[in-house]
Design a protein around this nucleic acid. Structure first.
Length: 577
RNA sequence: GGCCCCGUCGUCUAGUCAGGUCUAGGACACCAGGUUUUCAUCCUGGUAACACGGGUUCAAAUCCCGUCGGGGUCACCA
């Protein structure tokens, strides 16, 4: 009866352990979600642990971003950095096994490393990265499989090691792998055996004294009582190392479940690189168009972004793939970047629940043809047994369809609230329109938008200055100029009646327009389209009555007048065709 | 290249563990038609898959072997 009682699994402990080196990736979001769902399903504990042992790449800013994204997604954790808005995550932490930042747990890793040394399972290695690299290159040239050879390091006498250490020679601590095969019992993949000959002694303490991922991960999982580890399949080959470490340290092995990977639609890996690539292409297109050189472009870009010219030039010439630089360039050029991180989807106007729903379907399915579900459902239904084994491609079209459906199902109030939030973060239309008109704006887009962002892109014309509105030439030609300027004629005829509308409301405008249409025996489309082009500059807008109402009488009349001025002289129009 | 994992419609998947109910179901995409003042919705219908080859069996998408294909991993990154 030493087995865990499945009826009383309150001891389930899972964790999400990101390294703070950027935004939260969608793949990370799925990992977090599954670990969260599994813990919740079993009434267990979900931990957020920050793996910031890479001094060079970890930043506090990334930590904040990740926490912010998790909160936006609606995933909460029981132990870890305090998620209360305004709390300082590094100093305010919750839970009995903290701190939850690996950078603050140095002594624990040191202790366990010492234990391994005492047990003869770890040893110092003074080979430099350069030496190691040379050996690997050599092996490659000889078409041999490279494997670290511990003979030299193991042969060092205690006194030699002491001498080297007192000289200040840099060294790492390596773990002595057992010479037996290791069989993993993966909850998704089943038994996987790795031969002893395939595994080498790996570094557990870097020369800067920080632990590697392997040591820190294993020590923390054990000390925090983690029982189940759901992680991406790219970690599969790390698992024998972790198992060996656990065995050597006398830790129980948690249950591992390795999840399939998520790829781009074209099968390439979904990575931050994709954003850099897209931004770089935009910059290169610009260079081609203008014939500028890189530095000139970098200087002019630096003027309108927060990034300095040198960094921009480096980025464009592919010397770095910095995401913030990519974002800056893309927004300067007005080109979209592929959504990769949770934050990207947030900016694109996806609902957090939809993103989670979609991402859960990548590698997991509840069966029974169920596809739409929420966190509550996952909390009750999620299980490891139904995690798939094969990699998935991320299909934005399907995500968009889910989002469209979810937005349409939102109550007007809920949609309005969310639109305000999105506006505040990204657009500031409400400031320009005022509360009442913004409310109408929200109402008329609710049933015709696929994301929270589209209204602002498609409805740009609502906030443009009347005389700054640009007209789509194709729309002008098709709707206004065609048939000897029939569209212009409609506008001209409608100007006075519209001017006479009082009050300026959907009802009065509708009455005016339908009256005109009936009188002239025209269908509504023939009347609405010229108006639409006149006030919006294009053939697309919300229903025309709503559009005019939100715009207001002054703007409507000004735009009609301005549009009429576009009309070529009657004779010219006839000749030009 | 070594080792490891995977392989059902274009994509995500149900079905595989306990072989027959699968002339393989759903969703997204796509195509056709319809509703609609534009757009976005919405409605109806349709195209479309068990990677290939052997074997086991009365019976295989389901079990076994091989081939091919895809992916992961081979760091003082996590």
């Amino acid at each position: 009866m030493t087995e865990q009682d499945p009826a009383n699994p309150a001891n389930v402990v899972t964790r999400f352990a990101p390294s703070p080196t950027g935004y939260l990736h969608v793949g990370g979001a799925r990992t977090a979600l599954f670990n969260w769902a599994f813990a919740r399903r079993h009434g267990g504990t979900f931990i957020l642990r920050i793996e910031d042992t890479d001094q060079a790449r970890s930043t506090p800013e990334s930590t904040r971003r990740i926490i912010d994204d998790l909160r936006w997604l609606g995933l909460d954790w029981d132990h870890g950095p305090d998620a209360t808005p305004g709390a300082e995550p590094y100093s305010s932490q919750i839970g009995p096994a903290g701190p939850y930042f690996q950078s603050q747990r140095q002594h624990l890793y040191q202790e366990h490393a010492d234990r391994l040394i005492e047990a003869g399972r770890a040893y110092r290695c003074f080979k430099t990265p350069e030496q190691l690299k040379a050996e690997r290159d050599q092996a490659r040239r000889e078409k041999r499989a490279y494997k670290y050879d511990p003979t030299e390091a193991l042969g060092l006498s205690d006194s030699t090691i002491a001498d080297y250490l007192s000289e200040g020679r840099p060294s790492v601590l390596r773990f002595r792998m057992p010479d037996t095969d290791i069989t993993l019992n993966d909850a998704v993949l089943g038994d996987v055996t790795i031969k002893a000959a395939e595994m080498e002694d790996f570094v557990i303490l870097k020369s800067d004294g920080f632990p590697t991922f392997h040591l820190a991960n294993v020590v923390d999982d054990a000390l925090m009582g983690v029982t189940h580890v759901l992680r991406a399949q790219e970690h599969l080959m790390n698992t024998p190392k972790h198992a060996a470490l656990q065995d050597a340290l006398g830790f129980a092995r948690p249950t591992y479940a390795h999840m399939p990977l998520i790829f781009n639609p074209d099968g390439t890996k979904m990575s931050k690189r994709d954003k850099a690539k897209a931004a770089r292409n935009a910059a290169k297109d610009r260079l081609k168009q203008t014939g500028q050189d890189v530095n000139t472009l970098a200087v002019s870009l630096a003027a309108e972004t927060a990034v300095e010219a040198g960094a921009l030039a480096d980025f464009i010439e592919a010397r770095n793939d910095d995401t913030d630089t990519a974002t800056a360039i893309a927004s300067a050029f007005g080109v979209p970047l592929p959504e990769i991180d949770v934050h990207d989807f947030r900016r694109s106007g996806y609902l957090p629940a939809v993103l989670l729903n979609y991402v859960a379907l990548l590698g997991w399915s509840p069966g029974n043809d169920i596809e739409r579900f929420d966190l509550d459902f996952l909390m009750q239904q999620f299980d490891i047994e139904r995690i798939g084994k094969s990699n998935a491609r991320f299909d934005r079209a399907k995500l968009l369809a889910f989002n469209t459906e979810a937005i349409t199902a939102l109550s007007p109030t809920s949609f309005h609230k969310r639109l305000i939030k999105h506006d505040e973060a990204e657009h500031h239309f409400r400031h320009a329109l005022g509360d009442e008109r913004f409310r109408m704006f929200a109402d008329c887009y609710r049933e015709r938008t696929r994301t929270l962002d589209e209204p602002f892109v498609n409805g740009r014309f609502f906030v443009t200055e009347d005389d700054a509105l640009t007209y789509d030439p194709k729309a002008v030609k098709k709707v206004l100029e065609k048939n000897d300027g029939a569209g212009f004629a409609v506008l001209k005829a409608l100007a006075d009646p519209l001017q006479a509308c009082d009050p300026w409301s959907i009802e009065s405008i509708e009455q005016t327009i339908t009256a005109y249409a009936t009188e002239h025996d025209q269908n509504l489309g023939k009347v609405a389209q010229p108006l639409r082009v006149a006030v919006s500059g294009s053939t697309v807008s919300p229903p025309i009555y709503d559009t005019l109402t939100i715009l207001g009488k002054d703007a409507t009349m000004a735009r009609i007048a301005r549009c009429l001025a576009l009309q070529p002289a009657a004779g010219l129009a006839a000749e030009s065709t």
